[in-house]
């Protein structure tokens, strides 16, 4: 893909997210390819780790603030901050201002950062107006809207507008698209039986479609859904599920980088 406007385009700091960093770097590289194609100049600050959401959602405000300060320090210099996750972008955009509501020094800084932080697909459409995607995929797909992206950031049409530009991709919506899959960060381990019950329902809803590939914008949800699909197959309980049903992050498909092993599947 061309990146001719490398010098004139906006300076974007990529917030990789800890899950992508640790579990699936290919999503990070796909995000970079897309952002460069859109004409952005990308930096990946080395001092980033996590957005602090696990601490924040567990009531550990002190650690959440300490982690958030690192993110603010590392990213406030950029024109935009983009994350391949609605959950982490939502944390920075919606929750950092609340976290520092009583801190007069931090308040302007977190507001400034919140203003310019975006989830990947919404950034590509709403800010960069990307219309010339160069990707092919010969598969029936369905899309899972992650809760934070959908309800905190209003990410709904943007991934679909991008998928419509992928040659050969046929989108079939599924009934559970907007229903929480039960991941919920630490929830999936702390209340694992409720979480399992929820993801079971998501997977049953997926079985009602003809999709061969489930896409989404948040790796946590995708790992949860794939983990359940995979276990049901192991147990021979996935009779009404297509054995071929795979799970991927949307960035990999949009960037034309969906040739590697999909989530939870072996190489080759």
């Amino acid at each position: 893909m061309p990146n001719s406007s490398l010098n004139s385009g906006p300076k974007v700091g990529l917030f990789v997210t800890c899950l992508v960093d640790l579990m699936r770097p290919s999503i990070g590289f796909a995000a970079i390819k897309l952002l460069e194609h859109a004409g952005c100049h990308i930096s990946v600050p080395e001092s980033q780790t996590c957005c602090g959401q696990p601490a924040y959602n567990s009531g550990d405000t002190k650690n959440a603030k300490d982690i958030a300060r690192l993110v603010v320090d590392a990213f406030e210099e950029f024109d935009y901050v983009v994350a391949p996750s609605g959950s982490c972008a939502g944390m920075i955009k919606e929750h950092y201002p609340k976290l520092f509501a009583d801190d007069l020094d931090m308040t302007p800084r977190v507001y400034n950062l919140a203003q310019k932080t975006h989830e990947l697909t919404s950034f590509l459409i709403d800010v960069m107006n990307m219309q010339d995607l160069d990707a092919k995929l010969d598969q029936k797909i369905t899309y899972h809207d992650s809760c934070a992206g959908l309800r905190e950031l209003g990410v709904k049409t943007q991934p679909r507008q991008l998928l419509a530009q992928v040659e050969g991709a046929e989108l079939e919506e599924y009934e559970g698209a907007e229903t929480c899959c039960g991941f919920g960060g630490t929830f999936c381990v702390k209340y694992s039986d409720i979480s399992d019950h929820m993801v079971q329902k998501s997977v049953e809803a997926l079985a009602d479609t003809d999709a061969e590939l489930v896409l989404g914008g948040d790796l946590g949800c995708l790992m949860n859904i794939q983990g359940k699909l995979s276990r049901l197959k192991d147990e021979g309980k996935a009779t009404n599920l297509k054995a071929t049903l795979k799970v991927r992050h949307i960035a990999e498909v949009l960037a034309g980088m969906a040739d590697n092993a999909s989530i939870g599947e072996p190489d080759g």
Binding site: D21, G28, V44, V189, K190, G227, K228, D234, I263
Partner: peptide, 24 residues
């Protein structure tokens, strides 16, 4: 250490290297 997850779900394996490592 992730029994809550793996009791009912498989855990997708990481790709290997971290993004930061590969980027560097």
């Amino acid at each position: 250490s992730l029994k809550g997850w793996t009791n009912s779900r498989n855990f997708p394996a990481p790709q290997g290297k971290t993004f930061q490592q590969m980027w560097k």
